[in-house]
Design a protein around this nucleic acid. Structure first.
Length: 439
RNA sequence: CGGGGCGUAGCACAGCCUGGUAGUGCGCUCGCUUUGGGAGCGAGAGGUCGCAAGUUCGAAUCUUGCCGCCCCGACCA
């Protein structure tokens, strides 16, 4: 992509409404534009990142055996009356009336909808276990939206729903998602730790929040230092026993958010207890028959008797992750994207656009990288070096390739690693090999 | 939902107290000089001063009402 043909409205100065770093950087890097409180448009750069994250989440859900569907954003109120949540949800639910005076709502989540789908079609235990997920926009009319995309009212969430014959099956489904989440966050370049979460009125011990560590996080977390040394599971599939073993390992260390942390009850030696800040990016829980019971989601069991299915739900805040990753990965010059989510892999800077030899060298380099399947943002604009460097640092592409009159004369390209700041002078071929991963 | 703050050009802000033809920097357009870490000079474009009512000869400025946005706290992917 040539920058001269791209839409990248960057800002030199900090917009005053943005207080936290991810919000500031997203606005300055031209990723998003606010529409109203907690509601944003995604501009090309931000949209690319959002889609990259979404795709990784999708791949890991698929790998875990969940099936992708797409449920509507607008739901009929009657579904929610059935579960009793139409009255319970309160003002956070955006209620709409259609032209026929029917009560509708913009979905804040989809338990009712998915249970209705299940109930309509699944009648036998032979079709279990089942896990259906979608990645869809949600709306929660938060009292106080803030931090840009991190707590918007409209947000993109992956939500999966599992259906099992009994508690044992449901626990395996839960463990399966637990492990999928560990893989997902690792692929996103994040250190995420699972915390035992408050299960609220539902009770039970199966609920975990996944927290991304970032100094600017909104809640304080306490955990045993060895938790971060654990190896992320990598296999494609696991047996129920293996899943349980992974979950047991990850939950064997102390980890709690400030609301669950009780220093009196925490038995971790002081030297081993770490306290940092974190951002919640995922939440999984088992809730049994809370929805299957009122919706009559029943299958016939092996013995011919009806069984109300046992359910769980599993959320990942996809749009929040964009902010979360920036919070966890930035420096004083801007964003530092992990390679897997970066909007482009390489930023190519032409230091003297309009100069024949320089343009030719850049065009050639750009053509070769593109032909190798590398996504490149090529700054072919007439600007000066300084502003081009600053802009590339701001938008945080993992690699920068710099070609100017000096390099053209000597046949060299300067390649900079955004994360480490390391710069090296390489021949064109060596630079191509490095950037295409053939080095 | 309690508390606080702010709305003036695309962005950041001054002007308001003490009413009198709307300003600065950045950005944008054109020209020239520049070009390896956000250049210099010159010439331009761009504003119903959030909205409405009121006071006044005259309102960005004073009064009242409304709207929007942000921050702190209690709650949430």
């Amino acid at each position: 992509m040539r920058l001269s043909r791209f839409f990248l409205p960057t800002l030199k100065e900090d917009p005053k409404e943005a207080q936290i770093v991810s919000h500031r950087l997203m606005l300055r890097a031209g990723m998003i534009q606010q529409s109203s409180a907690g509601i944003y448009s995604w501009l090309p750069l931000g949209h690319r990142v959002l889609k990259n994250i979404e795709q990784i989440v999708r791949e890991e859900q698929n790998r875990a055996g969940a099936l992708e569907i797409l449920m509507p954003t607008i739901q009929p109120a009657d579904l929610w009356r059935k579960s009793g949540r139409y009255d319970d949800y309160g003002k956070e639910m955006l209620r709409i009336t259609d032209r026929h005076e029917r009560d509708m709502l913009y979905g804040p989540t989809n338990e009712e909808q998915v249970t209705d789908i299940f109930r309509s079609h699944v009648k036998s235990y032979k079709n279990l276990p089942l896990n259906l997920y979608h990645i869809q926009w949600k709306f929660r009319d938060e009292v106080r939206p803030r931090f840009g995309i991190m707590r918007g009212r409209e947000f993109l969430m992956k939500d999966a729903y599992s259906f099992d014959l009994d508690y044992e099956g449901a626990r395996t489904a839960y463990n399966n998602m637990f492990v999928a989440y560990l893989k997902t966050f690792a692929r996103l370049g994040l250190q995420a730790i699972p915390l035992r979460a408050d299960t609220g009125p539902i009770g039970g011990d199966l609920s975990h929040e996944f927290i991304v560590l970032a100094d600017t996080g909104e809640s304080e977390v306490f955990y045993h230092k060895d938790l971060l040394g654990l190896k992320t599971p990598e296999k494609d599939s696991y047996t129920a026993e293996e899943l349980q073993a992974v979950v047991d390992e990850w939950t064997s260390f102390y980890a709690a958010a400030d609301d669950m942390h009780d220093p009196a009850k925490c038995d971790v030696p002081e030297g081993d207890l770490v306290s940092r800040r974190g951002i919640e990016v995922g939440h999984i829980f088992h809730f049994g028959d809370k929805y299957s019971q009122p919706f009559d989601a029943v299958v016939t069991g092996p013995d011919g008797k009806d069984v109300t299915v046992s359910m769980g739900s599993y959320g990942i805040g996809v749009s929040r992750l964009v902010g979360g990753i920036i919070e966890a990965s930035h420096d004083e010059n801007g964003i530092v994207w992990p390679e897997n989510v970066a909007p482009f892999k390489v930023g190519l800077i032409n230091l003297k656009s309009g100069d024949g030899p320089c343009d030719a060298a850049c065009d050639d380099f750009y053509g070769k990288l593109s032909a190798a399947g590398i996504e490149v943002l090529y700054d072919d604009t007439a600007g000066r070096g300084g502003e081009k460097f600053a802009k590339m640092d701001l938008i945080g592409l993992p690699w920068q390739a710099v070609i100017g009159p000096r390099g053209v004369a000597s046949g060299m390209v300067e390649v900079k690693n955004r994360a480490t700041g390391d710069k090296q002078e390489l021949s064109v071929d060596a630079a191509l090999n490095l950037l295409t991963g053939k080095a």
